[in-house]
Nucleic acid binder design. Structure first.
Lengths: 356, 356
DNA sequence: TTGTAAGCGTTATCAA
DNA sequence: TTGATAACGCTTACAA
């Protein structure tokens, strides 16, 4: 029952070789006789060796520069939080020689994405963090980086092409189901509910379609379809008058509408509309703790938001890349962040937290 | 704009002294001329020095043994999770020379607590982790360890006496408010709700009283008192027949009862009763993802539980102690874990997670 | 193909 | 009151 920590030195000793050789085996840098290799591997197994990752980083003393290609947050407050998460992870990892350079593109201009992506490519980073909002435009770069052996982390929107190192974000389908269950719990009696996409190009946003599917499936799978009617709508808030008109029409034609689920962080647009119209009997469920949503949660006009951990997405993206580059750990291909239900009474914890 | 990491060596150089002297200043081990001390402190400030904690642990190469005094989990599944959290933290921190010895006492026997506490004292640990279930009995030991300079972490139940190093757990009052808001959201129409304590010695459990207060305050503060009636009851499940009888009486005398809030992890007792009686119109809100609760969440008989992060409590207790002993960080006096709302559709994330 | 030795940021011991 | 120095676990030139 010896709890002694196993070091490389111990393995070397037991195998009758030097620490350098063990290290070479551990990192597959070849130049080791196959026979010796097998022996060392066996001992590693037997002694249940666990590397000291910090010492590893300390010893190797390398510098890594990584590039984060993310939306400019001035046009959409949601994107401020990933930036904060990236900042805070960078601070933690600076002592291991990691530095992050952020490239911000405009959310409404694909050409700005392309321009920044070019810059990223030119900078020859050791790794890339990408929010693939412009999915189609991102493809050629994903290919280029893949071919160049540059590891890529995608976050927020799942992308499977050119196998990125990993995806950080939520399970959109399950997120839709969760939203539906919240809506349902709040409406014990039969009624109509509305699912609303606001200001989104659904062609470029498969994750929103998955949320929608999850939402509908919840009602179907639980045999609620005969008592609850699920409507859907795509709203354009950019044309304010049309936005209002669309909602007015829906409400008039759906007198038993009791809940609205907004698939993005723009729940506040609906809340503002309801407040404006003096409507109190319709409950809203949405996403994310951005300032305008917080305001309406506190006033009771938004019942719940599901936290997508924008800060955590940035934070974990950097960490995942550091685990790969600096600590040379195996990193999981998916990191699904938890689906957290936030309401007025537990909100403060989610505002404080750095990450999850 | 130099991003260079500041090392002790840099400070030493700039101050014209050796690294040893800087180290002595940083750790207040005296034997440094006051003048030099001031100068070094100024440079530390100026250069914004951040210690490399892992290198610190690596360099100091000390061993720490800590004692965890926690309930035996065979009599109450809730207490299995803190043990798991402690185990997993121990594994992570073993490479820094930390080891944890667990002392398990019987939940229903104060003398067993005293016996184990004696053993802990005799073992002369470098730190103690304590779940102060037997609050009154714990006092003399808290005093003894405090006098001996042994840092103590209390978790799960807040204790202020003999200033422990820190408290890890939840804000019970806010937790009660959150439960009330969930109950309220699920009952748009006026009704009665029941708050139930099960099998608890309320004299030794101030945290349960705080939950109760928070629960009641939510209804009062939101002007709901005229539409919702909050009843309370203390149930003893140990006498099964009496337990059933009590519930039968309450339900008969309260025909408009629609929701029950259980202040501990024993929500499953109520759910089982309701299922047994074939009652479907009463919703249950409780605590924690123990197996019996998971079962009833999946069957829809428990709507929500608030996760008290039993695993995280153990995990963070060990880490907090390690931060203090091994890494010599300043540790916060309180670590309030987040109030997470768990339902069938997001449960899996909370089952997987190691900690929060 | 393998071993040696220096070095990463920090601490601790010992001599000055 | 100070400064050197070895050590912690690991990596990496470079020499053998």
């Amino acid at each position: 029952m010896k709890n002694k920590i196993v070091r490389i030195k111990d393995i070397a000793e037991k195998a009758g070789v030097s620490a350098g050789t063990v290290d070479r085996v551990l990192h597959n840098r070849g130049k080791v006789a196959e026979e010796v290799r097998q022996k060392i591997l066996a001992i590693v197994e037997e002694l249940n060796y666990r590397p000291n990752y910090e010492a590893r980083a300390l010893g190797s003393n390398k510098k890594f520069s990584i590039a984060a290609l993310i939306p400019d947050y001035t046009s959409d407050p949601y994107w401020y939080d990933p930036k904060l998460g990236i900042d805070s992870a960078e601070k933690e990892l600076a002592q291991y020689g990691l530095s992050v350079r952020q490239y911000l593109f405009m959310l409404d201009r694909a050409d700005s994405f392309v321009e920044k992506a070019e810059q990223v490519s030119d900078s020859m980073p050791d790794g890339v963090i990408l929010a693939p909002v412009f999915y189609k435009e991102a493809i050629p770069y994903l290919k280029r980086w893949h071919d160049a052996g540059i590891p890529v982390i995608v976050f927020n929107t799942e992308v499977k092409d050119f196998d990125p190192l990993s995806y950080i974000g939520q399970d959109s389908y399950q997120s839709g189901r969760l939203a539906a269950s919240l809506v349902h719990y709040g409406q014990p009696h039969p009624c109509s509910v509305l699912l609303a996409h606001i200001d989104e190009d659904l062609g470029n946003s498969t994750h929103l379609m998955r949320k929608e599917q999850g939402f509908k499936d919840y009602f179907d799978d639980n045999g609620l379809a005969d008592r609850y009617t699920v409507k859907r709508v795509e709203l354009k808030r950019r044309d304010y008058l049309a936005f209002i008109r669309q909602l007015d029409v829906i409400l008039q034609s759906t007198p038993d509408l009791r809940s609205i689920f907004v698939t993005t962080s723009k729940g506040y647009e609906i809340a503002a509309y309801l407040e404006d119209r003096g409507i109190e009997h319709i409950k809203v469920v949405g996403y994310d703790l951005i300032p305008r949503n917080i305001y309406f949660i506190n006033r009771g006009l938004i019942s719940f938001v599901i936290n997508q951990h924008p800060r955590g997405q940035g934070y974990w993206s950097v960490h995942q890349l550091a685990d790969h580059l600096v600590f040379r750990k195996d990193v999981p291909q998916y990191k699904y962040l938890s689906l957290d239900i936030v309401t007025k009474e537990n909100m403060s914890y989610f505002l404080e937290q750095e990450h999850r």
